[in-house]
Computed example of a mutant assay.
Amino acid sequence: MILIETIQKMYEHLIWANQRILETLQSLKIKNQEGSRLFSHILFSEKVWITRLQGMDSSRLPIWSDVDIEVCTELVMQNEESITIFFTNLAETDLEKIISYKNSSDKEFKNSVRDILTHVALHGQYHRGQINSRLRANGIEPVNVDFITFMR
């Protein structure tokens, strides 16, 4: 499989996994504050990185914010649309393009599009695992967001 196809598949999984986590958090009778906080962090981080990949300033965007599930719902939809548009216009040769950006501490960095896309996908999966851990600790069945489950 060509590298770009692998990365696109990772993002199809990311969209699927976010939707599954969202549906679970929406269905809880008692709100899971820490789960919602981690989920909003995933979504805000995706938005920040998408903004950077589009060559725009992300310095005013939050990375951590206590928001309700309705805001998460909106972010899921916005991010899915932005990701879809981004991949529609992405060529294999774009993966090695270097992106310059500043982090939330105003420190400048440079990374390839490939490395940024890989980071975002792995970052989200890490935090979805944390959400599942919080759910289990509260007696709630974790959400299966495994890549292989998505592929099946």
Score class of each variant (00 low, 15 high):
1 M>K: 07
1 M>S: 13
3 L>A: 06
3 L>R: 11
5 E>M: 11
6 T>G: 05
7 I>A: 02
8 Q>C: 10
9 K>H: 09
12 E>Y: 07
13 H>T: 00
14 L>M: 09
14 L>H: 08
17 A>F: 00
19 Q>E: 15
19 Q>L: 13
20 R>W: 07
20 R>Y: 10
22 L>T: 09
23 E>Y: 14
23 E>I: 11
24 T>D: 01
25 L>H: 06
25 L>A: 02
26 Q>F: 10
27 S>G: 08
29 K>M: 13
29 K>I: 09
30 I>G: 03
30 I>T: 15
31 K>T: 15
32 N>V: 02
32 N>F: 06
33 Q>R: 14
34 E>W: 08
34 E>K: 15
34 E>G: 05
36 S>R: 12
36 S>A: 15
37 R>M: 11
37 R>V: 09
37 R>C: 08
38 L>F: 02
40 S>E: 04
40 S>A: 12
40 S>H: 04
42 I>Y: 01
43 L>H: 08
43 L>Q: 11
45 S>G: 13
47 K>V: 03
47 K>A: 12
48 V>N: 06
49 W>P: 07
50 I>E: 08
52 R>K: 12
53 L>V: 06
56 M>W: 07
57 D>H: 03
60 R>G: 12
60 R>S: 12
60 R>A: 10
62 P>I: 05
62 P>T: 04
63 I>G: 00
64 W>K: 10
67 V>A: 02
67 V>D: 03
67 V>H: 01
68 D>C: 08
69 I>Q: 11
69 I>K: 10
70 E>C: 11
70 E>K: 13
71 V>S: 06
72 C>Q: 10
73 T>Y: 12
73 T>R: 15
76 V>L: 02
76 V>Q: 04
81 E>G: 07
81 E>N: 13
82 S>M: 13
83 I>M: 01
84 T>V: 11
84 T>S: 15
86 F>N: 05
87 F>I: 05
88 T>A: 15
88 T>D: 13
88 T>R: 14
89 N>V: 03
90 L>S: 06
91 A>K: 14
92 E>T: 14
92 E>C: 02
93 T>G: 02
94 D>K: 09
95 L>C: 02
95 L>N: 02
95 L>D: 00
97 K>S: 10
98 I>F: 12
98 I>E: 09
98 I>S: 06
99 I>S: 01
100 S>D: 10
102 K>L: 08
103 N>S: 05
103 N>A: 05
104 S>Q: 13
105 S>Q: 15
106 D>H: 10
109 F>Y: 13
109 F>L: 06
109 F>D: 04
111 N>H: 09
112 S>F: 01
112 S>A: 02
113 V>P: 01
114 R>T: 12
117 L>A: 04
118 T>C: 12
121 A>P: 00
123 H>A: 00
124 G>R: 00
124 G>I: 00
124 G>S: 04
126 Y>P: 04
130 Q>A: 03
130 Q>D: 05
130 Q>N: 12
131 I>F: 01
132 N>L: 09
132 N>R: 04
132 N>S: 05
133 S>K: 14
133 S>C: 14
134 R>W: 05
134 R>Q: 14
135 L>G: 00
135 L>V: 03
137 A>S: 13
138 N>T: 09
138 N>R: 04
138 N>V: 09
138 N>A: 14
142 P>Q: 11
144 N>T: 13
146 D>C: 05
147 F>M: 06
148 I>H: 14
148 I>V: 09
149 T>R: 14
150 F>T: 02
152 R>S: 10
